[in-house]
Design a protein around this nucleic acid. Structure first.
Length: 644
DNA sequence: ATAGGGTTATCG
DNA sequence: CGATAACCCTAT
């Protein structure tokens, strides 16, 4: 309760926009999967993966979506036995565990759950058999195979194939992995129908060519309509006619519970426009930065802030200020309860969005339009910082940490914005589009030689067998500073300081170029990774001299990402949400710094369940690659740093 | 599963 | 080389 309140007020523009992006990419990923364009699918998941490292307005349905993405990406790689998402498991075994989480959260009928699980296991066994991994097939068979009557036959069959070391058999040929994938997708889609993302609606309603005209899909779900559309608007600036805007507004206000009439909005707009020329409202779908006067902090667009490197509050915080202070063209929709416009809908569906999805029956979940309505107001901002987000070539934001300005200042402007919502600015950036170009899917195995393609470097998610890896690194330097400073800052809403969380940029294939320094470095990184080859088969370098007892069974070693410190700052690389690492033997130890988002989850979790219930917290948020112990340690650190 | 102490790698 | 965040190990 209180949580929700405070959350609302502290939502930054980035959080909100990231959520839009998140929703959009989830949607796209699903479309891609359905279209069997798995390359695109991995591109999208990888975008998502990096997106969630940033602060994002998390809501229960985000967790569901993340789980679905995790599930599908494991399914997608399930036929590659040498990949792993979680250490000892094969992708499909991981899929099973994700499935279990999903089922826990969404009350899936046990029967269905069983069926899906069984399908996965059978497929896994077949995959093992086909690739001659009989021992592993046997393991799986013994460990997971259902004891149900009806599967007894199959079990026998598999057993005999294993015994006879047969890697080909009619049964094995019969079922294709592709069908299996689609079957799993169907399962997901039955379970959770993803509503059309906000961004797409915007685009559609704005009459963007291509969006609305597209056929409404082959499946019962209208999901593909967007595929082309959204991708072309690279530099398009959607111009909305008043009429269509009004329509959009109607829908959105309903969805988000905005209680202001369009007319009111319009009036405000007009007033603001007096000082400006543009008779039309521009929603910048790409960069169309306008010149703007310099109000108090107006000059401080993120792009600007970003450059000076010194410490800062959390990124989110400052961005919040951004929104509040420096948007001259912002249209604030007052929360007038009464509307003189018939078209207006007063807040609707206040169905408590706030608790777990665990309560939702699948049926409910499928209801479209169940966006949370944390925002009671929408703020459309037609200006600012577009340049930074959208325009700037891939490189710029990456290296930069957001900078902070003394926060003190903005209190006034804050008041300006009425009660509840912090206000979101509608900034729509053209998404970086990972095209379908040839780039290898996130999964590669023999890639070292391929550095010529800069993109392989981009997705750090997976490494080639030889643990080439891309490392985190330079960020730490700045991190340190940040921490120091932030500690002194106010505290009320101190969001974790730790970092602004830079994410990898997915370069638009359109320009795999070198213009981007960071990326460049990255490739360098990979190529410089020379030792890995040789060392690869040395799976266990005891890293710890002092624990004799643990027969060295699972020693990990500190990875080699240290070699490259200073080259770039992606630390969220391996062990990511959707991507696998390769080579089961290569246990790598990646020292993953904690992201702001993760820390937020943790804080929220502690608020909700109390410190000490780490496992519970862990499973209630989409943490990946974090164990309960990690959470506990992180909490300890946060306490120490007084970040909480 | 959790608490708490020990270890490691990085940075100033 | 000391400080420190993330990690590991182990007793409870």
């Amino acid at each position: 309760m209180s949580a929700s309140a405070s959350k609302v007020s502290s939502l930054s523009d980035e959080q909100i926009i990231n959520r839009w992006g998140f929703d959009y990419y989830v949607f796209k990923a699903l479309s891609a999967f359905r279209d069997a364009d798995y390359t695109a699918f991995t591109h999208f998941t990888s975008i998502i993966e990096n997106l969630v490292v940033r602060p994002v307005d998390g809501h229960s349905d985000m967790i569901v979506k993340l789980r679905c993405m995790q599930f599908l990406s494991r399914i997608n790689n399930g036929d590659k036995l040498d990949l792993t998402f979680e250490e000892p498991k094969t992708p499909l075994e991981s899929a099973v565990s994700v499935l279990e989480s999903i089922c826990r959260d969404m009350s899936v009928p046990p029967r269905e759950q069983e069926r899906v699980k069984q399908a996965i296991i059978e497929t896994l066994i077949m995959v093992c058999l086909r690739s001659g991994e009989f021992t592993r097939a046997e393991e799986v068979l013994l460990r997971h195979f259902s004891d149900a009557e009806d599967s007894a036959g199959k079990k026998k069959l598999f057993e005999s194939l294993i015994r006879r070391r047969r890697s080909s058999h009619s049964v094995l040929q019969l079922s294709s992995y592709a069908d299996f994938k689609q079957d799993m997708l169907d399962f997901i889609e039955r379970l959770y129908r993803v509503p059309e993302p906000f961004l797409l609606q915007m685009l559609k309603r704005s009459g963007h060519p291509g969006v609305s005209s597209e056929p409404v899909t082959s499946s019962s779900q209208d999901r593909q309509k967007t595929s082309a559309a959204a991708e072309h608007h690279g530099g398009v600036c959607a111009r909305l006619s008043l009429h269509s805007l009004r329509q959009v507004y109607g829908v959105l206000s309903e969805r988000y519970g905005v209680s202001v009439s369009f007319t009111q909005l319009q009036q405000e707009l007009e007033e603001e426009q007096e000082q400006e020329e543009s008779p039309e409202l521009h929603l910048a779908l790409s960069e169309t930065p306008r010149e703007q006067p310099e109000p108090p902090y107006a000059g401080m667009t993120i792009s600007r802030l970003v450059q000076e490197d010194d410490s800062q509050l959390s990124a989110a915080e400052e961005e919040e200020e951004e929104t509040q202070i420096s948007s001259p063209h912002r249209i604030v929709i007052p929360s007038g309860p009464d509307s003189d416009d018939p078209e207006v809908r007063t807040p609707v569906r206040r169905s408590d969005t706030h608790n777990h999805s665990s309560e939702c029956s699948p049926a409910q979940i499928c209801t479209p339009a169940r966006h949370t309505q944390k925002h009671n107001r929408i703020v459309l901002s037609s200006d600012v910082e577009a340049e930074d987000h959208a325009a700037s070539p891939p490189s710029s934001r990456r290296s930069s940490r957001h900078k902070q300005q003394k926060k003190s200042v903005h209190s006034e402007s804050k008041c300006v914005m009425v009660e509840d919502d912090g206000g979101s600015s509608a900034q729509v950036c053209s998404p970086a589009r990972p095209s379908s170009s040839s780039s290898s899917p996130a999964v590669r195995r023999s890639a070292r030689d391929t550095q010529r393609q800069s993109r392989i470097v981009l997705s750090s998610d997976v490494e080639p067998e030889d643990h080439a890896t891309s490392p985190p690194s330079s960020r730490r330097s700045s991190r340190h500073k940040q921490q120091q400073k932030s500690v002194h800052s106010e505290s009320e809403c101190v969001m974790e300081v730790e970092d602004g969380g830079s994410c990898v940029q997915h370069s638009t294939p359109a320009r795999p170029s070198a213009t981007d320094t960071q990326r460049h470095n990255r490739s360098v990184t990979v190529s410089s990774e020379s030792e890995d080859h040789n060392s690869s088969p040395a799976p266990q370098t005891p890293r710890r001299r002092s624990s004799p007892s643990s027969g060295g069974a699972h020693k990990r070693r500190r990875a080699r990402w240290q070699d490259v410190s200073g080259t770039h700052e992606n630390w969220s690389d391996e062990e990511s949400l959707f991507s696998a690492t390769s080579g089961r033997s290569s246990k790598k130890y990646s020292r993953k710094m904690w992201t702001v988002q993760e820390s937020e989850w943790l804080k929220e979790g502690v608020r909700r369940f109390g410190a000490g219930h780490w496992e519970k917290i862990r499973s209630s948020f989409p943490f990946t690659g974090r164990t309960a112990v990690n959470l506990k340690d992180r909490w300890r650190t946060m306490l120490k740093l007084r970040l909480v």
